[in-house]
Design a protein around this nucleic acid. Structure first.
Length: 424
RNA sequence: GGAGAGGUGACCGAGCGGUUGAAGGUGCUCGCCUGGAAAGCGUGUGUAGUGCAAGCUACCGAGGGUUCGAAUCCCUCCCUCUCCGCCA
């Protein structure tokens, strides 16, 4: 959420900046509702002050017959207040609705662009292997080795669900443990294991609601949603809290499954593990002071890249342009891993600085110093990494001509010493 | 699922329907004391909205209601804890 005062005073500027994302804000409605809200608030507050003053007077008067008129008048005033409060409530609701659907302003260093074609490649890492044959796609490798079963995943649930088997299941688990160990032991993140369902307030706090409800799985019964990323529960850990400056930065990592409807991507990436309704992810989340957020995003990005470096998977880093960053983000770097089976780089991590956008929605504040006013923290997060995509990248990059897959060195201890997956 | 208890400020914990934004304590701030510290003494210490400002308003789990006036009374919901049952 943007600062309402900033918006009030800088509507033109905000509009220009939002335009670079390709989204417009409703200037007229916002201004009108904002003004109406303040008018109503002024009236209501004046009446409430009057009511409080006279009521105190009535309280002090022993002989109530002396204040009969006042009591009658206050009855009247109370009714007016109730009416104003009701108008205020609906006005506020409308205003909030507008505010909650305006995306974040892009970071001043975020490259301006019209589409994903304008994203800027920042660097590449690792060297791409040469193959003496045409590299196979992971779905073929997985099925041949009998470690991925797409057919039965579909039978059990439906499209975009996969059954992992034997060394495949173990590899997924090994990756989760490897990533968590790396981030906790070397990068000093604190591990969290949050609920996989959250309520509406949490989804609103990080920006999924109210705008993107169609992308979420909602459970029957209580008003809960399956999380689309650990970002949601982990960021909301500190919702409605005031943190001490000394606590910051807070760095958390969490493994969770993620559930996404993938509405609007019918027919895309229908084969394999790329786009699933349920996938595993290890997430990195930071709460930092505003001055540090740019720098901390770089660190978080480096932490995510470190995973790929240790796994020796080639990748590139891309600076997303204004048209391609997400609703809540000011700046986003994607890490794209090389997939020889498809001859492309594919996103495996997305690292973003949200500045105070989520913090304002979720009321996550801190006190810069003793006695100072509270300020919103900046939140940062990124995948470290998407586990399913990491697994498929390993299958494709470590495939051998005989159909087997070599297990990356760093994962072998997590695989009971297994050096190569050879199938049956 | 059944029975009971409770949700108040950073924390603990009072609170008769009216001068309670909220006693008291802990913690923390600053000052005194001290060679220095501890102890002790004094002082200050909520969040947010709105207004040029003085100020005003709101908030004692959430939402309704009664009343001139509600942290205090009534209703609904949520959450926590204890016991019983069931269960991974």
């Amino acid at each position: 959420m943007l600062d309402i005062k900033f918006l009030r005073d800088n509507l033109e500027l905000a509009q220009q900046q939002l335009a670079t994302r390709g989204s417009a804000i409703n200037l007229a409605d916002f201004q009108q509702l904002d003004q109406r809200r303040r008018e109503l608030l002024g009236k209501a507050d004046t009446l409430k002050a009057e009511k409080n003053r006279v009521s105190a007077l009535i309280g002090k008067t022993k002989d109530k017959s002396l204040v009969k008129d006042e009591i009658g008048r206050m009855k009247e005033v109370s009714t007016q207040i109730k009416d104003l409060d009701e108008q205020l409530r609906t006005t506020n609701e409308k205003l909030q609705n507008i505010l909650l659907t305006i995306p974040n302003l892009p970071h001043e260093n975020c490259p301006v662009g019209l589409s994903e074609d304008d994203n800027v490649k920042v660097r590449t890492w690792g060297s791409i292997r040469e193959y003496s044959y045409t590299p196979r796609a992971h779905w073929d490798i997985g099925e041949e080795l009998d470690i991925l079963d797409f057919e039965r995943g579909g039978k059990l649930t439906g499209a975009r669900f996969t059954l992992y088997k034997g060394a495949g299941a173990r590899l997924e688990r090994a990756l989760i443990n490897f990533m968590l160990d790396l981030h906790t032991e070397q990068h000093k993140y604190v591990e969290m294991l949050p609920p996989f369902m959250v309520n509406r307030d949490s989804m609103t706090g990080t920006g999924q609601l109210p705008k993107f409800e169609d992308d979420l799985f909602h459970v029957e019964g209580p008003d809960y949603f399956l999380i689309p990323t650990a970002e949601v529960p982990v960021t909301n850990i500190h919702r409605d809290e005031i943190l001490a400056a000394e606590q910051l930065p807070l760095c958390y990592t969490a493994y969770t499954p993620c559930f996404r409807k993938e509405a609007g991507s019918h027919g895309r990436d229908t084969r394999g593990l790329i786009r699933q309704h349920q996938f595993n992810k290890v997430e990195l989340v930071k709460f930092v002071v505003p001055e540090e957020s740019d720098h901390e995003l770089d660190n978080l990005l480096a932490n995510a890249e470190h995973v790929l470096q240790l796994l020796e998977l080639p990748y590139q880093v891309v600076d997303l342009c204004t048209a391609d960053i997400g609703f809540s983000a000011t700046r986003t770097f994607d890490i794209e891993v090389w997939l020889p089976g498809q001859n492309v780089y594919r996103e495996i991590s997305s690292c973003s600085n949200f500045r105070d956008f989520q913090a304002r929605r979720a009321a996550i504040r801190y006190r810069p110093e003793e006695g100072a006013k509270t300020e919103y923290v900046h939140t940062i997060n990124g995948s470290g990494l998407a586990v399913g995509r990491t697994l498929l990248a390993i299958l494709e990059n470590y495939q051998q001509e005989d159909g087997s897959v070599v297990v990356p060195k760093v994962l072998q201890p997590y695989m009971g010493g297994l050096e190569r997956i050879t199938g049956k």
